[in-house]
Nucleic acid binder design. Structure first.
Length: 584
RNA sequence: GGGGUAGUAGUUCAGCUGGUUAGAACGCCGGCCUGUCAAGCCGGAGGUCGCGGGUUCAAGUCCCGUCUAUCCCGCCA
């Protein structure tokens, strides 16, 4: 029987002369007749092994990539000309005196060292092979490290990690629930948590004071590159706090994680901007602050121009960018198409040259107006302006998206820089046109600002909430709020959302009851842990930091989930499947 | 639900305005080779062009439908 003495990444000059036994995969094989080189690989690194004895060469010639082997031999120094500076073990090699083949590998369906070299469909099907890739392993290692730092940090601050149920009651507000049928209670269903929101508030009522959990959450909605149907939150809640207490704690948590995991220092305190300000300046509530290019109100000038398409519009939004020959007609067309695909009528533009405006819609602005524009926005020579006119919502939103697109084109997104910002003063409600009722912008447990409580009954649309988000580099990384701790107010909020007493009692009665028995003022926040790890790893796809992710249609290509179940299983649950017309 | 992109050898791709036997690289199999490190050289095998229909003398190529992956919009309290 074998027993490994070292891993494949740790041998160096200090081990020269010692006898070792290494285990791992054949990373590459170079046969030269009377000598064979094997790079043996494990999670820790690669080591070059030499086979130069006749019996070993016969065996070595039968090897192929990804076979699992063990090698025993002597660590030997490489002569100067053969040192490989690329790898940690490059100063030594192991001269084998025994080779054991532990497992033979068939040719791989995906190459493991070059992830780009196969389609994602293929890689997800053989995810366990893709996970042999160094980068992916490093990402998972970083994820582990980040979780560990979070647990340590919060534990030291008296937070207790408490598990909450995964099978819970469905309360259809917000996202669609993943549902689990009950065998015992025919026709009834559990829901998987979208977040442990109510449980953690109940912990505060219980007097547990400070709670956290690194926990899986589930939302049955359509996916994006930063959204998975099941994802992980760092969920936390604390009693007897107001907004500044939470912000202070969270800033310390975030800076600690970035420092411990990535060695990056982030300045405190984080900048704070209001929701309205963020929309005005960046056209989004998750602005990327790694670059400037703020949006401007251009209405004043477009009104004075002869450009008819901008007349009679609510709003004209403008950004200006330095143009160092990047914005060719082709690129401008590309941006124009992007704007149109988001619902804008088009993207107007003009360039600033020799203290005048030129190209695009410049001819609709007379020379006086042009100089006014140039001096008002301090436009520099060789810059380009982009404008969108529409209702203010759309104009800002679309130009905000153009802003990020331009930043990508100009390579302004440095993944080693982290720019966090608090977004605060969200409206408490927004009007749902289709349902014709108010809906919570955050969730219905978010408290209104103390100064706005009177407006709750008169004009709910003007009420500002005690909610806050943290955005880093354009990703919404965390969101939370100070909660309502008064049962009457909680009931009032549900009523504003057009819920009847009966419905409130059915869905949330237990929770409103709980609020009656001495509820401390409390608040908290939940981090999208996956997104945080994405930032730490410098990747822009959530699948790169999850071991076994789902596709954009929420299926698992490896094990083929979801799947059909047997008649027996259906009968146990008293469920029958409706046949579509197509299937008949 | 809507829009964009992709689907051809084990893998990644090429294949023009429809026209001989659908090509390349890597991998695989066989052989040679004592200093390579993505080793090299010689030879070989390997294809239901995602699937279904249509147009045509002729379809990988054109048309319609459909499936899968991916990006975006809607959606994500």
């Amino acid at each position: 029987m074998f027993s490994r003495t070292n891993n494949c990444g740790e041998l160096n000059k200090t081990h020269i002369g010692s006898n070792v036994l290494l285990c791992g995969w054949v990373n590459s094989l170079r046969t030269h007749g009377k000598i064979i080189f094997i790079d043996i690989r494990d999670r820790y690194g690669k080591t070059q092994v030499i086979l130069d004895k006749d019996d070993l060469i016969d065996k070595g010639n039968s090897l192929s990539n990804e076979d699992v082997i063990s090698i025993s031999g002597k660590v030997s120094a490489r002569t100067k000309e053969f040192i490989n500076k690329e790898i940690a073990t490059g100063e030594i090699e192991v001269i084998a005196d025994k080779l054991e083949i532990l497992s033979v590998s068939e040719p791989l369906p995906v190459p493991i060292h070059d992830r780009e070299a196969s389609t994602e469909e293929q890689r997800l099907k053989y995810r366990y092979l893709e996970l042999r890739n160094k980068t992916l392993q490093d990402n998972l290692l970083k994820r582990h490290h980040a979780a560990q730092v979070v647990r340590n940090f919060l534990s030291k601050k008296d937070f207790i990690e408490i598990e909450t149920p995964v099978l819970m009651k469905s309360t259809p507000e917000g996202a669609r629930d993943y549902l689990v049928p009950s065998r015992v209670h025919h026709g009834k269903f559990y829901a998987l948590p979208q977040s442990p929101q109510m449980y953690k508030q109940l912990f505060m009522i219980s007097g547990l004071d400070k709670y956290f959990q690194i926990v899986k959450c589930f939302r049955d909605e359509d996916l994006r590159s930063d959204r998975q149907p099941e994802f992980t939150q760092i969920d936390l809640e604390m009693s007897f706090v107001d907004e500044p207490d939470i912000r202070n704690l969270v800033e310390n948590l975030i800076t600690t994680v970035f420092k411990e995991v990535n060695g990056v220092k982030i300045k405190k305190p984080f900048p704070v901007i209001t929701y309205n300000e963020s929309i005005q300046r960046y056209g989004t509530d998750k602005p990327d602050l790694r670059y400037d290019m703020e949006l401007n109100d251009f209405k004043e000038f477009s009104n004075k121009s002869d450009f008819k398409s901008f007349k009679d519009l609510d709003y004209v939004s403008m950004i200006s960018v330095k143009d160092e020959g990047v914005f060719s007609r082709k690129i401008i067309d590309e941006l124009d198409n992007h704007a149109k695909s988001l619902g804008a009528k088009g993207l107007a533009w003009m360039k600033c040259k020799n203290n005048a405006l030129d190209g695009g819609i410049a001819r609709f602005f007379d020379s006086n107006l042009q100089s006014d524009i140039i001096s008002h926005y301090k436009l520099k020579d060789n810059s380009i302006c982009f404008m969108i006119g529409d209702n203010s919502n759309l104009a800002l939103k679309v130009l905000g998206s153009v802003r990020t697109k331009i930043a990508e084109m100009l390579n302004l997104c440095d993944n080693t820089i982290f720019k966090p910002v608090w977004i605060v003063d969200f409206p408490l409600f927004e009007w749902d046109k289709e349902e014709k009722r108010f809906e919570s912008v955050n969730h219905p447990f978010t408290a209104p600002k103390d100064s706005d409580i009177e407006k709750l009954s008169s004009n709910p649309e003007d009420v500002t909430s005690k909610g806050y988000d943290i955005v880093i580099n354009g990703y919404e990384v965390a969101g939370g709020s100070i909660r309502i701790h008064d049962n009457e107010m909680q009931k009032q909020i549900f009523e504003i959302m057009n819920m009847k007493e009966k419905e409130i009692n059915e869905k949330f009665g237990f929770f409103i009851d709980a609020l009656k028995f001495g509820t401390p003022p409390h608040g908290g926040i939940a981090f999208g842990f996956d997104r945080l790890v994405m930032l730490l790893c410098g990747v822009n796809n959530i699948r790169d930091i999850i071991a076994f992710p789902k596709t954009t249609s929420a299926s698992a290509l490896m094990e083929e989930a979801p799947n059909t179940i047997s008649e027996t299983q259906l009968n146990d649950l008293n469920i029958s499947i409706k046949k579509n017309e197509k299937d008949i």
